[in-house]
């Protein structure tokens, strides 16, 4: 193996290590914030780490078949792949990851990749609640993808590039160049779709984490659940980084990245703790109505 390849792999591992820890701490902080809004103390900030260790230390695990094994692997591949295709810090040699020209299309695909794998894995478990959760999850994700894709297309038309690095480069040079100011309609459409993409209330009916139908992960346990929980650290923060890149000027340093992604996450958390849950048809209808129309308007303004 040549030296350049080894350096590249080393950089990717360092980048993944950083984002995994950031994602875990971020979800710990998020649980704390939600608890404080509820008037509770909440779990400690490092609780996501303990949960992961605990899931790894389970002594037994049962399988329902090959796809059941592959479901969580697809999921974590989707999360890691998505993160590695997005430049986390603009201009950094190791946090630019593997972003290349034309990557926005691949990123849009990768957001869906893990969910499809998960759907196959959950279906193999044979549990009816898994099937219901998968059906609801895919329906809602499709509905939230549409306004997001429209917003991204508006951006592509605006900046005339498919590269995320190109979009970030076009936003450098001050606040006024950020997409949120140059293209507010696309930003609004994407930020509304983002709540659905992050599966936060009011769009969390398919997960319903503390009720009888827990959704797709009903049958997953032990190390399977470890992989799925660990994936949240990658997948959640990758989406945050993507939104910071597309709409808020990206980041030129790690502190800037942390500040921007944290504020974007707060938006979903605050909406989540304030609003009660939508039923599936309500959420799909809302997503296809409000953000999609705003996204269409944003795209139309760019095209004509």
């Amino acid at each position: 193996m040549n030296r350049e390849l080894l350096v590249l792999i080393g950089k990717a591992i360092a980048s993944l290590f950083l984002i995994a820890n950031y994602g875990l701490i971020l979800s710990g902080v998020m649980y704390k914030i939600i608890a404080r809004v509820h008037g509770r103390f909440g779990p400690p900030v490092w609780q996501p780490y303990i949960n992961l260790f605990k899931l790894l230390s389970m002594r037994t695990a049962v399988s329902h078949g090959i796809m059941f094994y592959l479901g969580p692997i697809f999921r974590i591949t989707g999360g890691v792949g998505l993160y590695l295709l997005i430049p986390a810090v603009y201009g950094s040699s190791w946090l630019s990851n593997f972003s290349f020209s034309g990557d926005i299309i691949l990123v849009l695909y990768f957001i869906f990749f893990g969910m499809l794998g998960m759907a196959l894995g959950a279906a193999e478990s044979g549990h009816p609640y898994s099937a219901i959760g998968v059906m609801r999850g895919l329906a809602q994700n499709t509905a939230s993808e549409l306004p997001f894709v429209l917003a991204v297309l508006a951006l592509v038309a605006q900046y005339k590039t498919l590269s995320i690095t190109g979009i970030v480069a076009a936003q450098q040079g001050g606040f006024a160049n950020w997409t949120v100011f140059t293209n507010p309609l696309a930003t609004i459409a994407a930020m509304l779709a983002f709540i659905g993409m992050m599966h936060r209330s009011p769009f969390d009916v398919h997960l319903a984490p503390q009720e009888i139908p827990v959704g797709p992960p009903t049958e997953f346990h032990s190390s399977y659940l470890f992989m799925m929980s660990f994936n949240r650290a990658f997948f959640g923060s990758a989406k945050l980084v993507l939104f910071a890149n597309l709409f808020f000027g990206g980041a030129t340093s790690i502190p800037e990245l942390v500040a921007k992604t944290f504020l974007i996450m707060l938006w979903t958390v605050f909406v989540g703790v304030v609003f009660p849950r939508y039923r599936l048809e309500q959420s799909v209808r809302w997503l296809l109505k409000v953000p999609t129309l705003i996204g269409l308007l944003a795209l139309a303004l760019q095209m004509f």
């Binding site: 649980y31 509820h38 008037g39 509770r40 319903a208 503390q210 827990v214 992960p217």
Partner: peptide, 22 residues
């Protein structure tokens, strides 16, 4: 699970399925 007792501060969370629970 409410604000008065809040067992989440002890790292305890309700889960709906026996597979995940300990």
């Amino acid at each position: 699970f409410t604000a008065r007792y809040d067992i989440s501060r002890y790292g305890m969370f309700p889960r709906p399925t026996p597979r995940m629970s300990s």
